[in-house]
Amino acid sequence: MISVIAYGLTLGGILYIISIGFSFTFGTMKIVNYAHALIFTIGGYILYATLPRIGFYPAAVLAATLGVIPIAFIIERFVIRNLYGESVDLTIIATYAVFLIGLDVLKWIWGSNPLQMSDPINKTFTFLGTELPVYRMAVIVIALALAILIEIFLQRSMAGKIVIAGLEDKETVRGLGISVQRYFTMVFIIGSALAALGGVLYAPITVVEPYMGFQILMLSFAVVIVGGLGNWRGTFVAAFFLGMVMSVTGRWWGPASEVAVFAILAVSLLIHPIDI
């Protein structure tokens, strides 16, 4: 039981870290960004590639997280920015194209075989008679710390207030003489770096492979919708809730875990349909 809860929280933490950037891009620019899955995957690969060279796990994590920034910048500049104000379908098609192109590049460099990563901490501790991997707990702590940092940024800084205002009504923000696009770009880059961090943290739990981002993006999509468009706190709650749902149903019957997530997504869409 304890281990099911712990795994649910770990999954929730990873879902949160990945979804937050996706959520902001969706909420501010109304763009469903499939390229987010690519960034996530690239994060995993950079970790795989740099770890043997650097040798120090946290440094490799940092390298992967920061390493995607130039890529995110290029994607934002040449794809995302041109999709601003376009229909959601078009944003999906365009960013999906980026995802596929990136996927081929990854396959070309590393092949399509799954690459195994070992648990970087490789220690366990006993909690109420259950043995739990320290690494998974670390993931939860990182997710919580990020949530707090994001909350502080949004609540306490000028830039944060502008981002909140932009989530609600970007045209009005522009009407106040603020280049709101600039703030969206910043949020996009930070969100992408976090996606990469999500890939990095997830890699030792599963395997690194070209499609690892795809499945997780679907889950992330569910998190963002269930949490409410443009609602960063909702994203947080939904990530942990769905992580828990996956862990519990997965324990009972593996394939059911994703079905459960999408069932909840469907119910949430029935209760409050999104209109973009």
Binding site: A159, K161, L176, G177, I178, S179
Partner: peptide, 29 residues
């Protein structure tokens, strides 16, 4: 946002004189 916070984005823009050296303003809201 609160009523007062609504005033922050416009006041912020004004204080910095639009498009000056700084790209973003991370000062305390």
């Amino acid at each position: 946002l609160t009523v007062l916070q609504n005033m922050i984005p416009p006041v912020d823009r004004f204080r910095r004189q639009y498009a000056n050296k700084r790209l973003f303003y991370f000062g305390e809201a």
